[in-house]
């Protein structure tokens, strides 16, 4: 009995210290990465290449998802709004939902699944096959040559993708609301124009995307860089990237939303 209890506390203690240990490792890694950014930023071609792989290749999934999310918002929004006789506000509701929340958040979730998982697997495999060691032996720092460009690409891609997501969503809502349901075209757009604020709504949404891009980018390169050099190690690192990224995005969103929009009206 006593020994079982002791074992339980041992396991608990081990669990907690190992998590704290990993957090410390991640913080130290982030610091080193920050130092490597200086060198990396001067080589824009490497970043552009990664923006292509992470960002451009995610365009279709982001645009299509945005379109469908916008359409669903329009159907649901119209159903509620017309009970209060304010169906023309559909454009505002949809645009605000997209620009403030769904654009940044859903894009970040999609990005984590589509692009970040690939980055983790790629860096993990490069490590397992000693490609990073070979680079280090050639006096080329893998942090600034391989890791930093992928991290920066996430920060650059995320806000752009979120903007495309929101745009596609508004178009989706317009197709459903104006073209199919028959809301007045002019009211749809003019109400949206009058009630969506550039600073409060668009800029805050953009800021959210940049924060999400930083978080998701950091998690993906960290997990890849420290993945165990085995098939199982890389598989679990990839899974961890998606899970931890998704949870971090949702948690960060809550924090940011409270900071940005509390007590606005």
């Amino acid at each position: 009995m006593i020994s079982q209890l002791a074992e339980f506390f041992q396991d608990l203690g081990h669990f907690v210290t190992s998590r704290i240990d990993r957090l410390g490792l991640a913080a130290r890694f982030a610091g080193l990465l920050l130092l490597a950014l200086g060198v990396s930023i001067r080589r824009a071609s490497l970043i552009v290449r990664e923006v292509y792989f992470s960002g451009v290749r995610s365009l279709s999934i982001v645009a299509v998802s945005g379109l469908f999310v916008g359409m669903v918002l329009a159907v649901q929004g119209y159903e509620v709004l017309q009970r209060y006789g304010s169906a023309e506000s559909l454009g505002v509701i949809v645009a605000l939902s997209l620009v403030r929340e769904l654009g940044p958040v859903v894009t970040a979730l999609l990005f984590a699944g589509r692009a970040s998982s690939a980055v983790t697997a790629e860096i993990g495999l490069m490590r397992a096959t000693e490609q990073l060691a070979a680079m280090d032996m050639m006096a080329v720092d893998p942090l600034s040559r391989v890791v930093a460009p992928r991290f920066l690409a996430a920060i650059v891609s995320m806000p752009l993708l979120a903007a495309i997501f929101s745009t596609a969503g508004v178009i989706g809502a317009w197709i459903i609301g104006v073209q199919l349901i028959g809301i007045d075209d002019g009211a749809f757009w003019s109400q949206m124009q009058a009630n969506v604020d550039v600073r409060i709504d668009v800029l805050n949404g953009l800021l959210k995307s940049i924060v999400f891009g930083t978080a998701v980018g950091l998690i993906s390169v960290f997990e890849g860089y420290f993945a165990a050099p085995t098939a199982e190690g890389i598989a679990s690192a990839t899974t961890r990237t998606v899970v931890i990224s998704s949870l971090s995005v949702l948690l960060l969103d809550l924090v940011l939303t409270v900071m940005m929009f509390r007590g606005l009206s």
């Binding site: 495999l125 490069m126 096959t129 000693e130 490609q131 060691a133 070979a134 032996m137």
Partner: peptide, 11 residues
């Protein structure tokens, strides 16, 4: 210069 066990070429 270092030759790695399995080459470590950039794939």
């Amino acid at each position: 210069g270092m030759l790695f066990q399995f080459g470590a070429l950039f794939t």
